[in-house]
Structure formats: C-alpha cells, structure tokens
C-alpha cells in the first residue's frame, strides 16, 4: 500500500513519504539511520498492534464485567464519620502531607516547595540532564534521583493505604461501596430489587403561620443552623415543617428542653420556659394541610 507504484497517482513517493521522487537531493530519512530489519508501519506493524490491542481490550472488558465500578451512597455533607480517600494515584501526595515539616505551619513547603522542585525537575529534566549519554547506568545522578523518587512514591502509597485500612479497622467501618454491593447481592439472592439509595424528595410542607414571633426564637436559638433556613432540614437533620404531625406539644417541649439522642442539643439552659412553651406551641401547629 505504502510502497506501490501506481502510475495513475498524482504524486509518486519513494520509500519515506516525505521524499518526493525527483525532488532534488535525497536526504536519507531518519529510519534508515538505524540499519536492521525495519518494517513498514502500514500495514505490517499496525496489523500486529491491532491484534495486541484486541487482546488487551478483551482482557479489559472481562475485568470490568468481573469487577463492577464502585459507587457508594449519595454525598451527605453532614456525614462527619466518613474517612476521605483520594484516588490511589494521589495517595503518595496525600500521605506526604501528613508528615511534620511539610504540614501545619510548614504546609507551604508541603504543597508548594517540595512538589514544585520534584515536578519542576521532572518537567525540565532535558534541560537539567544535558549530557549526550543516554544509557541510564552512565547517568548516575539522574537515574539515582529517579530510582529514589520511585521508591518514595511506592512507599508513601503503600503506607497511605495501610493507614486507611487501619483506620477502617479501628473505627469498625466497611467502605460504603462494599456495604452497598453486599446489600444489593443479598437482595438479589432473595429475588428482590436492590434497596434504593436515591432519596426521594420530601413532599413540600409549607411553614404554618410564618409571621408568628416564635419564628424569631427559631432564628435566635440557631435552630436553622441544623434544620436549615427554610426549616426543611438538611442531611440527617429532620425537617421542622410538618413536625406537628409527629409530636404533640408536650413531646416538643421535652425535646427542645432536654435534647434528643442523634444530634439534637438541649435548649433548656439557653431558652426560658416561656420561650420554649411559645416555640412548642408554634411547632405543634406545623402540620401538613389536611387532604
């Protein structure tokens, strides 16, 4: 294909395509400077490449079928117990920033100083290592620096993963995507649909009597800090709209005064009994409109 001599073609090439026939002095193309058994890229070499590519692709597909891509539970900004973990190829940097002298007051050194020197050195390697020698064992400085960095990166990655698994152990946590997968598997064994992890938007319940002075107490006592400015709740904090359907006035007085397990603090010391009474009366009125 590449070397045919069809007379009906407008431009005839010889050997390397950049050298046109009769174009004056024929400069030897770069590949002839490496004598040996060279091979035409198209079609000979490309065909072999594609065959290897097919094998790689099939292997890759098998992998993706055997190991589904992980997915945890929907992001919940109020989840304080989640152990953050970057993708594995950032782990070495993540771990590096945990050491003294590159964190806390030295953080500039950790985020800018040392990475800038290392990545800058890598970026500008050809201008730092300007010798003609190409064999790595004849370039001791460049090679040993690279070997050192490689060992450091591998070490930091392994240590970081170690820390993570250790943290999982002491906090007795199973990563979310494993929990989720396990639950889906159990459901599938029972022949059920996997449990839905997608939150359904709560039916909107309007605030009843929003002009009541109790609304000022709500703002002053910082209820809205957790229950959101529109009182519709956020994350694991429940909505206050419609709370009158769940609790009576007496129960609400108790919850506001003494708090409730699961995050609700006690306000008995911060608010007067009068204010709590006023608040609970108003909260008890927060009911969904009758249908």
């Amino acid at each position: 294909m590449a070397h045919g001599h069809k007379s009906n073609e407008k431009v005839v090439f010889v050997g390397d395509s950049r050298v046109k026939k009769g174009a004056g002095v024929q400069v030897p193309p770069d590949y002839t400077s490496y004598p040996g058994k060279s091979e035409a890229f198209i079609p000979n070499f490309l065909l072999k490449e594609w065959m290897v590519g097919c094998v790689v692709l099939v292997g890759f597909l098998v992998w993706t079928i055997a190991e589904p891509a992980p997915l945890g539970y929907p992001a919940d900004p109020t989840n304080a117990s989640f152990i953050p973990m970057p993708d594995w190829y950032f782990l070495f940097l993540y771990q590096f920033l945990k050491y003294p002298y590159v964190s806390q007051e030295y953080i500039v050194l950790g985020t800018m100083g040392i990475p800038a020197v290392l990545f800058g050195g890598l970026l500008l390697a050809p201008f730092l290592d300007t010798g003609k020698e190409r064999r790595f064992y004849r370039r001791p400085i460049a090679s040993s620096l690279m070997f050192l960095s490689l060992i450091a990166v591998v070490y930091l990655t392994v240590i970081s993963w170690d820390h993570y698994t250790h943290q999982l152990e002491i906090t007795n946590t199973i990563p979310e995507h494993h929990v989720r997968e396990e639950k889906a598997r159990e459901a599938a064994e029972k022949g059920q649909e996997p449990p839905s992890t997608v939150k359904k938007p709560a039916a909107a319940v309007a605030i009843v009597d929003a002009k009541d002075p109790a609304m000022d107490i709500i703002k002053q006592a910082q209820c809205i800090g957790c229950h959101a400015a529109d009182l519709k709740g956020q994350g694991s904090f429940p909505a206050l709209t419609g709370v009158g359907d769940k609790y009576s006035k007496e129960e609400l007085v108790d919850i506001v005064t003494n708090g409730k397990s699961g995050g609700m603090p006690e306000f008995g010391t911060k608010l007067s009994a009068d204010e709590i009474d006023q608040l609970a009366t108003w909260l008890a009125k927060q009911k969904a409109p009758a249908k």
């Binding site: 590449a2 090439f13 390397d16 395509s17 193309p29 590949y31 490496y34 040996g36 058994k37 060279s38 091979e39 035409a40 890229f41 198209i42 070499f45």
Partner: peptide, 10 residues
C-alpha cells in the same frame, strides 16, 4: 502513516 518501524523498537 507511511514510515518504517525500526528493528530496535519492534
């Protein structure tokens, strides 16, 4: 497309 693949990379 039209180039040779030298022996040392094949």
């Amino acid at each position: 497309a039209d180039h040779e693949v030298p022996e040392h990379v094949n």
